[in-house]
């Protein structure tokens, strides 16, 4: 899921300088799981903003904030509350925030969260980054463990000299990706494969902004 972290409250307050009324929008998907866009998070934000004299005209948790059309339709019911607000404060990821920018052309829209990474929830509300969406998955060659993401240097061909009893030189909190890859490929009997040199990545696959359109299958008659 997309991991988001709530900005420091003071940063949000600074952002809202000159804004006296806001509409709060959350998201029921990733941001709810991260606790940054859930109904509870919105209620807390409302209370906090009201305590410093801001008016909260209304709030709503979108089903899927990054889904522009769906969210637009959902928000029809809140039209008056949105109209009454100086700005929309979006408590989702940066994609959800920009859905609002698209839907409400003349309204100020601000992000309440920092969007961090694509994460696996490995324990309750504990997220680990394992894929950085490089656009060309190579983990068939690395035992299913992604060195692009989980090695801080993104090394594709084996451990650097800093590998340290299974941990990474960059931080004692990070396991060395290549120690893990080796151990796993040993278990799965793929060490021979590990001897092949992996060529430099094709970063043209990762250039932003990206567009992806699913080709429509031919209509059945």
């Amino acid at each position: 899921m997309i991991v988001s972290k709530a900005k420091e409250r003071q940063d949000v307050i600074n952002m809202l300088e000159g804004v006296s009324s806001v509409f709060l929008l959350g998201c029921s998907e990733c941001a709810s799981l991260c606790g940054t866009g859930s109904p509870e998070a919105l209620a807390e934000m409302k209370e906090s903003l009201e305590s410093i004299g801001k008016k909260v005209t209304g709030m709503f948790v979108a089903k899927t904030g990054c889904q522009v059309l769906g969210t637009k339709v959902e928000l029809k019911a809140n039209k008056e509350e949105v109209d009454a607000a100086d700005a929309i404060l979006v408590m989702s990821c940066g994609a959800g925030t920009q859905s609002m920018v698209e839907v409400f052309k003349d309204k100020k829209v601000y992000p309440a969260n920092d969007t961090a990474f694509l994460g696996n929830m490995t324990r309750f509300q504990h997220f680990d980054e394992r894929c950085s969406m490089c656009g060309e998955c190579i983990i068939d060659k690395t035992g299913g463990i992604c060195p692009v993401t989980t090695c801080p240097k993104g090394i594709l061909n084996g451990p650097c000299g800093g590998t340290n009893n299974g941990f990474c030189e960059v931080s004692p909190d990070i396991e060395c990706a290549w120690a893990k890859i080796y151990a796993r490929m040993e278990r799965t009997g793929e060490l021979e494969k590990m001897k092949q040199i992996i060529p430099p990545k094709d970063y043209s696959k990762k250039l932003s902004p990206k567009v992806f359109v699913i080709e429509k299958k031919k209509e059945e008659k």
């Binding site: 594709l156 650097c160 040199i197 060529p199």
Partner: peptide, 24 residues
């Protein structure tokens, strides 16, 4: 060489490149 990570150095906010690594 691949090179020590920027986190070890004196410009910790730099963007590490690592477009290639030592083997490449």
């Amino acid at each position: 060489m691949t090179g020590d990570h920027v986190s070890a150095g004196d410009h910790k906010t730099a963007k590490p490149v690592y477009d290639l690594e030592s083997v490449q």
